[in-house]
Computed example of a mutant assay.
Amino acid sequence: MEENKTISLELRNILDNTIEGIIIIEDGFIKNVNKSLINILHYEKEEELIGNLATGILIPTSNKKFIKYNSRTFQEISLITKDATIIPAIIKIKSISLNNKKCKMVSVLDMSEIKEKEDMLIEQSKLAAMGEMISVIAHQWRQPLNTIASIATRLKMKVKMNNLTNELVEEKADEINNYLQYMSKTIDDFRNFFEPQKEQTPVTTLSLVEDTIKMIGKSFENQNIKIIVENKKYSALYLHKNELLQVLINILNNSKDAFLERDIKEAKINISFDEKDSFQIIYIKDNAGGISSDILAKIFTPYFTTKTSKNGTGLGLYICKSIIEKHSNGELSVENHEDGVLFKIKLFK
């Protein structure tokens, strides 16, 4: 008996010194917790939790989501703290026997800090794209600005020649206004992209692609790269639109870099769509020559890049995968096909 008590105390000490929170559940009720869990949930003592229903602190996601962390698979859930704050977490559940009774031991890892760092990384990646975006804006504004300058010059000449009519002024004023509206719309598109977006909004996969091309399409045109989009519109999904735009921009820019590095003639990107009962897919296929199999297996690894340090950080595709699989209830995969690569973005309903 004394020996069992010693073993129990030793086990308790071990559990209280783990980083993970531990919950022992019997018939749905909390029978025991360790110190880490009390700290994670901002309680002061275990008595505040013991005897309560486990569902009072553990909230499963609407769809069972599983993520890999340190090569182990965990279920993603939310926790409710004492002050009713909801925090992200991952859990691992194991069936055990205590005092001849069947129980569940739930290991809980608080993901708040990791999620915050991930969100920061996504924002930093977005800011890193700003330089290229400014370049794109410059391209999209150059032609309207040149035209407005040309209209102003023509009007000045008409004034000097005393040949200016009210009709011409009205016509040219309308032209200038149209160009200014176009330039204003360009700024709105980019400003919306850089605004943090917390709420999910209904959006179709086709409109996501169309909005992406509005933003960066000119830079592809300038390099003679064709983007062919299948005109297929499926039902709207609730998504973080700006994050999905970031994924599409990253993937398309990767293709553009491959075209330029390899000097591909008749460069082409095909974007198509599909819908099944529980998900939709965006297919992005290029003809840039594909990726060798040993590299293909590593492209979603953080800090892995085939570009020079000047041109790549190795975080672009890692962030894309994080956005799709951890923020958007989806899957991102890539494979070689005929003469290029095929990215598949699967978005669950």
Rank of each mutant, 00 (worst) to 15 (best):
G316P: 03
F194Y: 15
S255R: 02
S322N: 11
E338T: 04
N177Y: 11
K31L: 08
A129F: 12
F194K: 01
G51W: 02
E76R: 15
S135E: 13
R262T: 07
N99C: 03
M130R: 06
T313I: 03
G21K: 05
L145G: 04
I22A: 05
K94E: 15
T201Y: 01
H240G: 03
L145W: 03
N13K: 05
K45I: 10
S8Q: 14
I30Q: 08
K298H: 06
I7M: 12
R154E: 14
I299E: 07
F304M: 14
A54F: 08
K214H: 09
K31S: 15
N231R: 02
Y238D: 14
E20T: 07
G28Q: 13
L252M: 15
K285Y: 02
S95A: 08
Y234L: 01
M1A: 12
T313C: 03
V209Q: 00
I324E: 01
L15A: 15
I291W: 07
S8T: 09
V334C: 14
K349Y: 07
V229R: 00
E44A: 04
F74K: 02
E2Q: 09
V136H: 09
K101P: 02
L252Y: 11
I77Y: 02
V106P: 03
L252H: 06
K65S: 08
S293Y: 09
S235V: 09
K226D: 14
F343R: 02
E20I: 01
E20M: 05
Y238K: 14
I50A: 00
M130W: 11
D189A: 06
G330F: 07
A129M: 11
K349A: 03
K45W: 03
K218R: 12
P202D: 04
T204Q: 01
K156W: 00
K64M: 05
K198C: 04
A129Q: 14
I50C: 03
H42F: 01
K310L: 13
I299H: 08
T61C: 10
E10C: 01
P60Y: 06
T308I: 03
I14W: 04
L244Q: 10
T153N: 14
Q246Y: 06
F74M: 05
